[in-house]
Design a protein around this nucleic acid. Structure first.
Lengths: 206, 206
DNA sequence: CGACACCCGTGACAAATGTCACGAGAATTC
DNA sequence: GAATTCTCGTGACATTTGTCACGGGTGTCG
């Protein structure tokens, strides 16, 4: 791939131009890193990755079109760069899914800026890097106690408002939906379905 | 203050270390800009501003402790730097409040990175800069149709869940609160108070 | 087989929520 | 002064929501 003398070839994807540009500037200062591509959404990130074959892809998790995990999946189908996910809200369940996708690095945006270059070097050297805070949270967080249908109901209840509509979406009777939501709320200790749906989302279960 | 030869003295405040560091790197590359202070919340930003007396303060809107507007207010009590607000979600109402605080610049994080330095120079030269997209949105957006009490109720309903608790917070009867929420929902075309509160927040009314 | 967990549905009930009609007070206008 | 409009407030009402108890069906595991 890249020998001792050549630079680490980096792709950056973030939908906020200001931040992407700033990251380019920050990392461009490093003598052993070269930014070879940048994108503002997951789809073009995947396309660019196929073209330029970078060593490392630095992907923001929250992006329009396709998020960081979608992009990682697409990228790994046509190449084998190392992937680092950057995120604002680090949720345990998301970390699990990221690791399932063979992601090599996972850092929150609260990471000190100086650290990032080191993480990139470590990952380029074949190591993996997981933010210790998030790792701890993911390990202490118990497994999702909800059943599949309960998760379906919660998912629908985030976008839809009335039980009727949720029932129609899932092809169920309204009573059943309320039962699922009720039991989910009981398991999560929430007092409204919105609260329960929020919690489930925070954990990365939906 | 600063004559032709001296650099623009800049304070940066953003709670995400990664972004703050990246911005420092980006702007540090400019020959006529010098980052003299940086903070990760509004309170320390205000304290630092009093100490180092920067020419320009670049404040993120979303910060813990005190947000960008709070910080701007505090800063302007003990000095007269020019303030630039940076934000992820640019809401029309927030722009209005920012202008009321004598803020000199208002840019979203979707601004191209190269632009930012130019904005800083313009503002340092005494001009004002408002992102055209947000300005247009703020001008087309009609004035808030809600009464003061309706706004109070919506504000409370974002943090509190039951009508009872909202009523206690506002020293009102539960029935009155429900009326305010109901009329607010009618005015906004929402079908639940959460939806209405969300809309009002999106517009920057609360 | 029995025990168990999950899926789907029903009916009934209390509490919370949203809607409505109505009234008191203040300000404006004729 | 009377009519009008606006805001703020109260109480009654139907609907929605969340809870509970129950039953039938399916598949898995010991």
């Amino acid at each position: 791939m890249n020998d001792q003398t050549s630079k680490i070839r980096l792709l950056i994807a973030d939908d906020e131009h200001l931040i992407r540009g700033a990251l380019e500037a920050l990392l461009g200062l490093e003598p052993d890193i070269e930014v070879v591509a940048s994108a503002d959404n997951g789809v073009t990130a995947a396309e660019l990755a196929r073209e330029v074959q970078p060593d490392i892809c630095l992907l923001d998790l929250e992006m329009p079109q396709a998020d960081g995990l979608d992009a990682a999946k697409a990228i790994l189908e046509h190449g084998s760069p190392r992937i680092i996910i950057v995120t604002r809200h680090a949720r345990p369940g998301v970390l699990r899914r990221a690791l399932a996708e063979q992601v090599a690095g996972f850092v929150p945006k609260s990471t000190p800026a100086g650290e990032l270059a080191n993480v990139i070097r470590d990952v380029a050297a074949g190591k993996r890097y997981i933010d210790p805070e998030i790792a701890a949270a993911a390990l202490t967080a118990e497994r999702c106690p909800l059943t599949d249908r309960e998760l379906d109901a919660l998912r629908s209840s985030r976008s839809t408002k009335s039980v009727q509509e949720i029932a129609e979406q899932l092809f169920l009777s309204p009573g059943t939906v309320r039962n699922y939501l009720s039991s989910a709320m009981a398991k999560l200790g929430a007092s409204s379905r919105h609260e329960a749906a929020d919690q489930a989302w925070q954990q990365g279960w939906i």
